[in-house]
Design a protein around this nucleic acid. Structure first.
Lengths: 211, 211
DNA sequence: TCCTAATATAGAATTTTGTTCTAGTAAAAA
DNA sequence: TTTTTACTAGAACAAAATTCTATATTAGGA
């Protein structure tokens, strides 16, 4: 039976007592160690022991905070996707029209992936088997993000600047190509980084959805 | 230390003796069992024992043929990608012009994924850590496929029907969106199957690369 | 046909790795 | 201060992958 019951005890506010700060620091150090190990050794090759040694803490401590190896992977994934979405949303909202918004999606993804290579590579991992709870949390995050993005773009569809398409096709049409390109780049299949092709992919994305 | 040294002893020609036929049959039954287990239980949850029981053979036999659990995963992956590429190439070659070729890529991928759901889902798995040998074999297969496809399309680029782009961008531009759509569909994120959107994605692919 | 080497199968033994358990420490609350 | 709770540590345990040893089968040559 796998333990999946570790609670997220982050304090809602910022500081908190000595205890809470220490806890947060420990959790972060474990996540950082995990990402480093995953990047260097691969997810499967990485053992709890590797992470534990690198984070400089005990097995007990890790299990106390994360419940299982999978729990670490989940927390790391949620953390990364949260950051990416947040930055993306901010960037989209900083633009003023449909074309700018669509191109911002592509461009920001290029930049973020270049700046956070390891996390970007990790987010491309597919078979992390999330616990039901984490899966639900992920969906929640995803729904909220999608709602925010679609909310921003909706007026432009209404206004006729963008095509009206089946909702589930927008993301693949806009992000599919650049995601695939970046994935290949991260796995070492080509040399040319995303920044060198971002204009091309931004154009393509826009022409796929413009009217 | 992981064992990765299982040889591929498939006979070059078709039939062979009783022994070779039996070997082939056994290997295939193991691969089929593995795919079934992976689909039902997930890759990580699947144990050698599950596969072994389902294939109706012993542990020793599996290790003799595949060397490791990862070895099974590799063989299955190579097998699947080989079939997909082969069918794709045949389909592309059956068309007569650039537009037909590009659209064929999208359409065939839709059809194949619908017909081979489990394998399609499996091919979307990312973190199978291939042995150096398998990795090399995969690259070899990939290079051969890419060479064949590019060979077919090259005249149309020369002839000015298709844009001349950095070579590594064609695949993401053409296949990226439909791949992403299918991936989401396979993971249960939407109801509408690929066949219902293939025309849309085929159009988008073509307009991304046409002149 | 019989012998030998290579191939294939089986399942027990071993090792590796993830998880649980028990004990103890330090901070917060009463 | 006392009590409760959160946290840390590492030994004990269990599950899974892998290796090992024994045996059977087939192909090929004397």
């Amino acid at each position: 039976m796998t333990r999946r019951d570790a609670e997220n005890n982050d304090p809602p506010g910022g500081g908190g007592g000595i205890r809470l700060a220490a806890t947060r620091a420990r959790k972060e150090s474990v996540l950082a160690a995990a990402l480093a190990c995953f990047s260097e050794l691969g997810i499967k090759e990485t053992t709890i022991h590797h992470i534990q040694r690198r984070a400089g803490c005990s097995i007990g401590s890790i299990y106390h905070h994360f419940g299982s190896k999978e729990g670490i992977a989940e927390a790391l994934f949620l953390d990364g996707i949260g950051r990416l979405n947040q930055g993306m949303l901010r960037r989209i909202r900083a633009t003023g029209n449909a074309e700018g918004g669509v191109k911002a999606v592509v461009e920001y993804y290029c930049e973020w992936s270049t700046r956070n290579r390891n996390m970007a590579r990790y987010l491309h991992s597919r078979d992390i088997d999330f616990s039901p709870a984490a899966r639900e949390r992920l969906h929640q995050i995803h729904r909220a993000y999608i709602a925010a993005v679609f909310g921003w773009f909706a007026p432009f569809v209404e206004g006729g600047e963008m095509r009206r398409l089946p909702p589930e096709t927008y993301v693949p049409l806009i992000s599919g190509p650049i995601q695939e390109y970046v994935r290949r780049w991260l796995s070492g299949q080509h040399v040319k980084g995303p920044r060198q092709v971002k204009a091309l992919f931004a154009e393509a994305a826009w022409s796929a959805v413009k009217t």
